[in-house]
């Protein structure tokens, strides 16, 4: 019973931390656009939080650059369990056009365990909403 309650609460209230790991900025701007009145992520209980301590879901954009790698891992460790990582955009999924570049590590999954991938280059705000909701539904 309590387990089900906890589970339900997790699905209904994901708080999000946005992390740029070397993206081209397009996904980041689109994530901000998703918070604007037009798309309104708060409908799903999603709030954008500034500190890793408050977050449940880490939204990563961009291929991880060599310089950024350690920092990303450190931020990931600061987030309290249970935590989920969402790779947003083609770069975060596989490296996209930067695949094979000497300073990018490929997708986020090379460094962090990823729970959901949202494709698009860049993602549209509606795709972001769709992806996060799908991630939450998969937890059921």
């Amino acid at each position: 019973m309590i387990e089900r309650l906890v589970h339900w609460s997790r699905v209904k209230s994901p708080w999000v931390l946005h992390l740029n790991t070397g993206a081209c900025n397009a996904c980041d701007i689109e994530i901000l656009a998703a918070l604007m009145p037009r798309f309104d992520l708060e409908r799903f209980g999603i709030l954008l939080k500034g500190t890793p301590r408050h977050a449940d879901v880490i939204i990563c954009t961009g291929p991880i650059t060599r310089q950024n790698r350690d920092r990303v891992v450190r931020i990931y460790e600061q987030v309290p369990d249970p935590k989920f990582v969402v790779a947003v955009g083609a770069c975060a999924m596989s490296g996209c056009v930067y695949r094979g570049a000497y300073n990018s590590m490929g997708g986020i999954d090379q460094v962090l365990p990823v729970n959901a991938y949202i494709p698009g280059c860049p993602i549209r705000p509606d795709a972001l909403i769709d992806g996060v909701v799908k991630l939450l539904n998969s937890l059921k």
Partner: peptide, 13 residues
């Protein structure tokens, strides 16, 4: 309520 239950079930650092 969901927010609070979720927070209670999270790791406490």
């Amino acid at each position: 309520i969901a927010d609070i239950v979720k927070l209670c079930a999270k790791e406490d650092i």
